[in-house]
Structures are given as structure tokens and as C-alpha cells.
């Protein structure tokens, strides 16, 4: 009896050498959660890109006489306070919510990863300076910072404010991601396998990208998926306060904040965009979970 035959997992022997990414994709394809999340995200992205695929109604065609009328015809979600088609508004709202949410999260993720990686990997005075800077950033209240930043960024009265809101949220929201990344990097950096690679003569970039980063991504991905939801919701807050999207821009956030005042009269205009928002955030969280698990060989 060979002493390996009692191993729990039987991987097909030999064949082509495989990579972690290849194995992860192999796993992802078999994950139900991944497919559900992917389908949801694709639908939402389609909605953001070509809303006319989903509805022929114009979300800006509002008639006060239809105020809070129940569902009928193509307006399957009914009408809101202004007499706008809630379904059409929700479909059209996807675009800015997604743009703001995804890009603000990307900006925050990139800044956070850069800060966290350098602080954690280099340590010493670099870490001290960067970490204190993160502390200072954390001390800035989101609203106050956003008011100042968004005002500066959207000086052009013609813009709809999407760029300003996205950059504002990205610049203010990276601190948690940086902290999480820093602590994961510190934990990974002190592992023996990093020392082993260093001993073999590996350079910093190899240490960082082959050894430390893959082993610090798990909690970072989770933080990012949560941040995505927060960003979509924050856009709503900023828009509600008048420093977010401007003009006749449509977004879930604006729709939700408008509807909250009339929730006792008609709940539909509040519930539908909220449901879409929740489904979007959930889809990204599920995707994040599935990807994280696929990249963890221990779960294989």
C-alpha cells in the first residue's frame, strides 16, 4: 500500500502542470453560487448599458396625474410621487448606480491595495508614515469630506456629477481596505514560505506577487464586496444632500431617497429600487465569496 493512498482528495495524476488560476477556474465552473451571481451581474450590466432592452417607457416622462397610481400596462411597478414609471426609473437607474459603485470601489481597492501592500511589506518608517496617514483619513467624516471634494470636482455646471461622486467615494473609502490588506500582508510576510523563497534568491516583486498577495486576498475581496454596497448607498446619500448626481440624473440612490418621504402612501417606489440595489450587492458578494473559495486550495 502506498502511503499516499489514504489522502482525502484524489487529484488526477500527472498531466499538464496546472496553475492556481487554472484550478480556480476549474472549480468556479462547478460552483452554483458563481453562476447565480454571474447571471445576476450580467443582467444588471446589460440593464446599465442598454436600458431600452428592458423597457420601452421613458423614465423622464412623468405625469402628475398618475401620482402613486398602482401597476398597470408597461409600468409593472406602478408610479411614484412625480407620476413617473417606477419600473422604467429602476431600469434606467442601474447605469449610474453601477458606474458609481463599481468604479468607486475599484479606485478605493487600488489605493487601498497599494497602501496596504507597501505599508505591510516594507514595514519600518514607511509603514509608520502610511499608517498614520490612513488614521488621518479615517478621521475625516465621510459627509464633510464628500461635500468639500465633490464641490471641487464638479465645478463644471454642465456635468451630471457622476465623475465627481465616483472619485469622491473612491478617494474617501479606501481606508478600511488598506488596513485589512496591511494586516493580511504582515501575516503572510512572516510565513516561512516567504523566507524560503527569499532564501532561494527571489526578488521583492516575486515575493509580493507570487507569495504574499495571493495569500492576502481573501479578506480583501470580502471588504471590497461590502464596500461596493456601501458606495452605491453613499451615492444615494450624497445625491439626496444635493452634492451627488445632479440635474435629471436617475439612480437607485436618488429614487430611494425620494421615495422614503412617501413610504406610507406608496411603498412600491421605495421597495423596487431597494430590491435591485440589494440584489446587485448580493450578487457581487456572492461572486467575491465564490472567487475567494476557488482560490483557496484547502477547500478543494
Amino acid at each position: 500500500m502506498s502511503d499516499t493512498s489514504i489522502l482525502a482528495a484524489e487529484v488526477p495524476a500527472v498531466g499538464r502542470p496546472r496553475s492556481l488560476a487554472g484550478d480556480a477556474w476549474h472549480d468556479l465552473r462547478r460552483s452554483k453560487v458563481f453562476w447565480v451571481a454571474l447571471v445576476l451581474i450580467v443582467v444588471i450590466l446589460l440593464m446599465a448599458a442598454w436600458p431600452s432592452l428592458f423597457t420601452s417607457a421613458d423614465p423622464r416622462e412623468c405625469v402628475l396625474s398618475r401620482q402613486h397610481k398602482p401597476a398597470g400596462g408597461s409600468a409593472i411597478f406602478g408610479y411614484d410621487f412625480q407620476g413617473c414609471d417606477v419600473y422604467a426609473k429602476t431600469v434606467y437607474g442601474a447605469r449610474y448606480s453601477i458606474i458609481v459603485g463599481v468604479f468607486a470601489t475599484l479606485i478605493a481597492g487600488l489605493i487601498g491595495a497599494a497602501f496596504g501592500l507597501s505599508a505591510g511589506f516594507f514595514g519600518g518608517w514607511i509603514d509608520a508614515v502610511l499608517s498614520r496617514f490612513v488614521d488621518v483619513m479615517l478621521g475625516i467624516p465621510l459627509l464633510l469630506g464628500a461635500i468639500v471634494l465633490a464641490k471641487r470636482l464638479s465645478s463644471d455646471p454642465a456635468s451630471n456629477g457622476v465623475f465627481a461622486v465616483t472619485v469622491t467615494l473612491g478617494l474617501l473609502g479606501w481606508t478600511t481596505a488598506a488596513r485589512v490588506m496591511r494586516s493580511s500582508v504582515i501575516a503572510a510576510k512572516n510565513q516561512d514560505y516567504v523566507a524560503a523563497a527569499r532564501m532561494l534568491g527571489a526578488g521583492n516583486s516575486r515575493l509580493l506577487f507570487r507569495h504574499i498577495l495571493p495569500n492576502s486576498m481573501a479578506s480583501f475581496i470580502v471588504v471590497l464586496t461590502i464596500l461596493l454596497g456601501i458606495n452605491i448607498a453613499s451615492e444615494a446619500t450624497l445625491s439626496f444632500l444635493g452634492i451627488g448626481l445632479k440635474g435629471d440624473a436617475i439612480s437607485w440612490g436618488i429614487a430611494i431617497s425620494e421615495a422614503t418621504g412617501y413610504v406610507r402612501v406608496a411603498a412600491g417606489p421605495l421597495i423596487w429600487p431597494s430590491l435591485f440595489l440589494a440584489a446587485t450587492v448580493l450578487a457581487f458578494i456572492m461572486l467575491g465569496d465564490a472567487v475567494r473559495d476557488a482560490f483557496d486550495p484547502k477547500l478543494r
Binding site: 502542470p17 496546472r18 496553475s19 492556481l20 484550478d23 510565513q191 516561512d192 514560505y193 523566507a195 524560503a196 523563497a197 532564501m199 532561494l200 507570487r210 507569495h211 495571493p214 495569500n215 482560490f295 483557496d296 486550495p297 484547502k298
Partner: peptide
């Protein structure tokens, strides 16, 4: 070269043996 003490932490869990 060196052989390390702890066989559980001295191998990168996200790399194949190859």
C-alpha cells in the same frame, strides 16, 4: 540552502508542489 522546521508553514498553500 535550508530545510525549515515547520512543514505546515514553509510551503505556500496556494502553489502546487510542482
Amino acid at each position: 540552502q535550508m530545510v525549515m522546521q515547520d512543514p505546515y508553514t514553509s510551503l505556500n498553500p496556494r502553489m502546487t508542489v510542482g
